[in-house]
């Protein structure tokens, strides 16, 4: 049901873009909206980060996933329970680049006995990793539309991505990987009962949106729906350098692609996609487990009412005296 909502939302978006282009609204779809989207994305993300930053981190609440630093002869796990900045950087790098925590994932099943067993469950990790890395590489490849002359590293990534000589124009492996992984991410939501149960419309929507973006992109590259990419680059360069132009005669499919990207950019800061920035700021991961070594300051640490020793002794002086406990005041 929720998946259907999201699916139709994306279909409607595609239809909107198509109608808009047939109604000759190319300036809107090619210039106005992309600018709005870019601004919404850039400022939206920055704004959300600043909003997060406005709240302090009152306590050091590292989740320790390994041995703490304690006695010199006990081996500390500086990547799972870091006590140095380097350790934290290492831990964060493993999280951000390789999804360390997700790599730990297990699958519980209850067998007769009763016996609970924990099996390996790396598919989500694998699909997630493939999805994010291929998305990143796809984005980097697209920079050829925005950079003139095209820098070497983009050429290098492109040529590595198209290393296998399949099809003309050459088939990019990341494109295939992106579509396959996003499909897997959808299928698990659709088919695994628990995941299906927790999924919201806002979980399906970005999946379908990204799927649609990837499909329209692939259609433009590999099928006769092709557009003149010289014009596309002209448009992209214009957008990037603030000398906007919309060249005549780029196919509708491109505007649909661009429109969906714009929607994604606008949607990004107000959605769970902010996990891109959030992962860097998660206090359980980006803090050192040096709590007892170094005092952490809570900026709003206000005084509270405690039961002071004096009051306490006053309350229990008689019984203490009787029991022979030492007293401050007789």
């Amino acid at each position: 049901m929720k998946a259907l909502y999201s699916f139709f939302a994306v279909i409607i978006l595609i239809a909107l873009a198509y109608l808009g282009i047939t109604a000759d609204m190319t300036t809107f779809f090619g210039l106005v909206l992309p600018y709005i989207a870019a601004a919404a994305f850039i400022f939206g993300v920055a704004y959300r980060i600043l909003i997060w930053a406005k709240s302090p981190v009152p306590f050091k609440i590292t989740t320790t996933c390994g041995q703490q630093k304690s006695l010199p002869w006990i081996k500390n796990s500086n990547l799972e329970s870091p006590h140095t900045t380097l350790g934290v950087i290492g831990r964060m790098a493993l999280e951000v680049l390789f999804f360390r925590s997700l790599f730990r994932n297990t699958k519980m099943s209850l067998k007769d006995g009763p016996k609970i067993v924990y099996g390996e469950n790396k598919w989500l990790w694998l699909a997630g990793l493939v999805f994010h890395w291929s998305f990143l590489i796809v984005i980097i490849r697209h920079l050829r539309f925005f950079f003139e002359p095209v820098p070497e590293f983009i050429l290098l990534i492109q040529s590595l991505d198209g290393l296998l000589e399949i099809y003309v124009p050459v088939l990019y492996m990341t494109g295939v990987a992106l579509l396959m992984s996003v499909t897997y991410l959808y299928l698990r939501r659709a088919l695994i009962p628990q995941i299906n149960y927790i999924s919201l419309i806002s979980d399906y929507f970005p999946l379908f949106l990204i799927m649609a973006i990837a499909i329209t992109g692939a259609l433009m590259r590999y099928t006769p729906l092709r557009v003149d990419i010289i014009k596309v680059k002209e448009l992209a360069m214009g957008l990037g350098s603030f000398n906007p132009v919309v060249p005549e005669g780029i196919g509708a499919i491109f505007f649909i692609h661009l429109f969906l990207i714009s929607v994604l950019l606008i949607y990004f800061p107000m959605s769970k996609l902010m996990h891109m920035a959030g992962i860097f700021m998660s206090p359980t991961r980006n803090m050192k487990n040096d709590n007892r070594m170094k005092r952490h300051i809570n900026p709003w640490n206000y005084p509270v009412d405690t039961h002071s020793y004096e009051d306490w002794e006053d309350e229990f002086r008689d019984v203490m005296k009787e029991a022979g406990l030492p007293l401050e005041k007789e």
Partner: peptide
């Protein structure tokens, strides 16, 4: 804000 409901925590 950032939970994506991946379900890794579920079981």
């Amino acid at each position: 804000d950032i939970c994506v409901r991946c379900g890794a925590c579920a079981d």
